[in-house]
Design a protein around this nucleic acid. Structure first.
Length: 286
DNA sequence: CCGTTAACCTGAGAGC
DNA sequence: TGCTCTCAGGTTAACG
């Protein structure tokens, strides 16, 4: 499911919901996610209090007392749901789907006194992992590149990285070791704003356009978070919380439409780049 | 080491 | 209605 903005919105919602709550019980209905869920998850988490929630790239990080961290990656279809015990109301943190997600995909449930947090993931590309100690957390994310809105993601850094690559810019920006948190939707959008053809060789991108990538990465991510992230796929049926940034898409999923840029008479084309759909204007992206 | 492709999964929607 | 096919917000092992 989510890229950086969606995970960030989930983080914000969770901060309002589960900080200072203590784990009463953990149920693992299906441990077979991308990586097998630790059998001892309940033993490890029981009676532990949640101190904070943060986000690193596309990962959600739940901080517990005694230096314990639970990291959640949502893969393509992972969602979290808060369910109130008494009212059985689903206070939804989801973007991908609706409130009546099949229960068979509720793989892990974390119980609190009056509520529970459900991890649902039809495709099981996501995973949940416990890390003990800040040191292990840092080690885990060692290979992850800077985030688009960080100081490290600057002209010098990006120029150096892109210059030594023989791949197209679309794939370069999807490389999480180069820049972290961007996925298929946002890379398509960023390249549109930057007027760069997605198949352009990354080593041939001039400084001027490198600066555009930085500028519009910041812009797109910021506005996406502001709009509550993007909800695609099943959003027709969504009665839970959903994002609105999909309404702002310029090219993603817009093949056949006219280019939204004023004074551009181009058309949005769809091509597959490394098995991922890519959208671009055939005139203004060069 | 680098770049590309296939594979991991389930479900929705299109076309017949 | 039902079958087959394609596609989906991600990552990475295996290959040349």
């Amino acid at each position: 499911m989510p890229e950086l903005p969606e995970v960030d919105v989930i983080k914000q919602a969770l901060r309002k919901t589960i900080i200072n709550k203590k784990i009463n019980k953990v149920s693992i209905h299906n441990p077979n996610l991308r990586f097998k869920v630790n059998k001892n998850l309940e033993k490890i988490l029981i009676n532990k209090k949640i101190l904070n929630i943060s986000r690193i790239a596309k990962y959600l990080v739940i901080h517990f007392e005694t230096g314990l961290f639970l990291i959640i990656h949502f893969g393509m279809s992972g969602t979290l749901h808060m369910v109130d015990k008494k009212k059985n109301i689903n206070t939804n943190l989801s973007f991908y789907s609706h409130l009546n997600l099949p229960k068979k995909h509720n793989h892990v449930e974390i119980f609190f006194k009056n509520s529970r947090l459900i991890y649902n993931d039809p495709r099981r590309f996501g995973f949940i992992k416990v890390l003990n100690k800040m040191e292990n957390l840092k080690k885990y994310f060692k290979k992850i590149g800077p985030e688009p809105n960080s100081k490290q993601f600057n002209t010098r850094y990006l120029k150096r990285k892109l210059n030594k690559k023989e791949i197209n810019i679309k794939n370069a920006l999807l490389d999480q070791t180069l820049v972290s948190g961007l996925g298929n939707i946002y890379v398509n959008e960023i390249l549109f704003y930057s007027k760069i053809y997605p198949l352009k060789k990354s080593s041939e991108i001039s400084k001027k356009f490198i600066n555009k990538i930085i500028k519009y990465s910041n812009f797109v991510i910021k506005i996406a978070i502001k709009n509550g992230g993007s909800s695609i796929m099943n959003f027709k049926n969504t009665t839970g919380r959903m994002g609105n940034f999909q309404k702002e898409f310029k090219v993603y999923g817009k093949d056949g439409y006219m280019c939204p840029r004023t004074n551009c008479k181009g058309k949005i084309k769809k091509v597959f780049i490394s098995n991922r759909s890519s959208f671009y204007c055939n005139i203004c992206q060069k």
